[in-house]
Design a protein around this nucleic acid. Structure first.
Lengths: 183, 183
DNA sequence: ATTTGCATGTAACTCGTTACATGATTTA
DNA sequence: TAAATCATGTAACGAGTTACATGCAAAT
């Protein structure tokens, strides 16, 4: 039930259509959360049924009409309740680590390929985070200053964690190569 | 389709019942992957249908009979294919970071509570990892030496990443407290 | 001419969680 | 005598993915 919370948060920033929310997910929080169109539209319908959001249809010319959702009071309360509720138990879903658990079955050069693959992925995540920081540092961005502070911190945290992961992967690659050289 | 891969890996170590696999998930890889009983039993049935595993029933006295699964050749091939296949795109499902994204809505003391909660969770993950390393360092454990090397590395990686996260959280708590003192 | 952006959804499916059901044996 | 361990599953639900369907406007 966490997509629901994320959507509540999005709608607290501004009223939005399903399409807007999807766009904002992709642009602003893609490395933190993601969701498909169909999932978002479905969730909005179910949230309206639960009286967390209300909708109105906005006529547009030259483009399709849109259905704009906004938070109800119930929705706003639910958002604030979630923010301060006890943290979810950490996931335990790390497909990459799961692979390494059995990587002893593979040849060293295959393992190196897998590690270098992952290295590239982490690098590209870090690039996205860096680019996000640039966007945030734009002084014309004054819309939600209270949120901005936290958003910058969270990107910094993301960078720290992924930098640590990168260093670990590099040391792993180095030691697999050394072992392969020995044997 | 990643539980399937994890189960293939488990069965490559030894033939096992659903119960055995669940136990091994919980004991050996809980911080990397987890799955419920019902999910595992369901997946085993579907894997047998796809000819990745085969089963036989083992009679026992004093305890319930068990259904023991082992890898078929197809299953073993599938496991090795997965190990060296291109890495899955990283998830982008970080409920904790998603919360921080909107944390500006909460009061500083509420935010500190949330952060300290998380801090405790990370500490307990690190404790589990440490305990796992102890188990691995037991010299009587000679069963799968090729896998052991990787398993130790992966725990080290887990520790590095989570230590980085812990340090970040600590610095965050400190700066929220400082801000609250100022304001 | 083709792709991208805007905009909404449905259908079918897989993956994951929670609750329930059963029952003997061993340990505290 | 209560709880944990061993052992297998079903049912219902919730969460997430993939593929499909439609159609106009603007930019390349």
């Amino acid at each position: 039930m966490s997509l629901r919370n994320a959507v509540l948060g999005m709608l607290s920033l501004r009223e939005s259509s399903g399409y807007d929310i999807k766009r904002h997910f992709d642009r602003a929080v893609h490395f933190v959360w993601n969701a498909s169109n169909s999932q978002i539209y479905r969730e909005l319908v179910s949230m309206e049924k639960d009286d967390l959001v209300s909708s109105r249809t906005v006529q547009q010319d030259g483009r399709p009409n849109k259905k704009v959702y906004s938070l109800t009071d119930t929705g706003r309360n639910e958002l604030d309740r979630w923010l301060t509720s006890p943290a979810e138990v950490p996931y335990g879903k790390e497909p990459f680590l799961m692979r390494l658990f059995f990587m002893g079955r593979a040849e060293p050069d295959e393992a190196i390929k897998v590690l270098e693959d992952r290295r590239a992925q982490v690098l590209s995540l870090l690039a996205v985070a860096e680019e996000r920081l640039q966007v945030f540092s734009d002084p014309s961005r004054t819309e939600h200053p209270d949120l901005l502070w936290w958003q910058v911190r969270l990107i910094e945290g993301f960078q720290r964690v992924n930098t640590a992961q990168l260093e670990w992967i590099d040391s792993l690659i180095a030691s697999v190569k050394a072992d392969a050289g020995d044997g």
